[in-house]
Amino acid sequence: MKNKWLTYPYLVWMLIFIFIPLLLVLFFSLTVRTPEGLAFSFENFQRFFEPIYLRVLLRSVYLALISTIICLVLGYPMAMILAGNNFKRKNVMVFLFVVPMWMNFLLRTYAWMTLLERQGLLNTFLSFLGLPPLNLLYTQEAVVLGMVYNFLPFMVLPIYSVLSKIDRQLIEAAADLGADQVTIFRRVIFPLSLPGVMSGITMVFMPAVTTFVISRLLGGGQFTLIGNLIEQQFLFVGDWHFGSAISMVMMVIILLSIGVLSRYDKEHEGGGLW
C-alpha cells in the first residue's frame, strides 16, 4: 500500500497550525521591541529569573507537586480496589472514573466554588451545627483541593490499567516462593505498576502546573501561578515577548519531564519524544 499522499493534508495542517506557531513563540521569546523595531535578545529569559517571577514558578511547581502526591496517595489504593476482582459491577465502577475526566473541568471547578463560598453549602452546614463560618474559598488549600479533585481520575486510571494487566500467576508464583502479602506488594506488584504510576504522575502534574483556571476561580487571583502569568502577559499586559519566554520555559520543563517519565512507560506505542 503506497498511499503516503494521504498524510499530506495532515502534515501541511500540522506544519501551519502546530509547527509554525511554536516557531513564532520561540521567535517572540528571543526578541524585544525597541524603538528601531524588533531586536534579538535574551532579555525576556533573564527577566523570568527575577525573584518575583521565580517565586511564581516555584509556587506553581510546589502546588502541583503537593496535588500530585495527594492524588497518588488517594489514587493508588483506589486503583488497587478497582483492579481487584471483588466487585460485581467493575465495569460501571471504572466507567464512573472515566466520566469526570470528560466533564468540563471548568464546571468541576465551579462546583467547588459553590460548595466553598461563604454562603455555600459547607458553611451553611457549619452554621447549622452552630459553628462560625470559615474562609474556605480563595485560599491556597482551595486551589490544591481543586487540582486534586480535577485530576484524581488521571492518576487512578493509568495505575488501574497497569495493575489489572499484571499476570495473576506472578503473584501466585511469588506466594509459592514464600513471599507474604506485604512482600508481594513491595517486590512484585508495586515495581510492575511503576509505568502506570509514572504516567499517572505525568497526567496529574502537567495540567496542574500549567493551569490558570483553577487558581483564578478557587484562588481568586491571589495565588498567581505560571499559567496566570502567561495569561496576563498575553491578554492584559500585551507583552507577547515576555509571555512567549515564560511559555518556552514551561514547555521545556514539561517536555523534559515527560521525556524522563515516559522512559518507564514501555507500552507507549511509537510515541515518547526520545
Binding site: 501551519i16 497550525f17 509554525i20 506557531p21 513563540v25 490558570f212 502567561i230 498575553f234 509571555g243 514547555m251
Partner: peptide, 12 residues
C-alpha cells in the same frame, strides 16, 4: 500544555 497550544495559535 493547552495554554501553549492556545497562545501559539493566537500568535499565528
Amino acid at each position: 500544555p493547552d495554554i501553549v497550544t492556545g497562545l501559539s495559535l493566537m500568535i499565528l
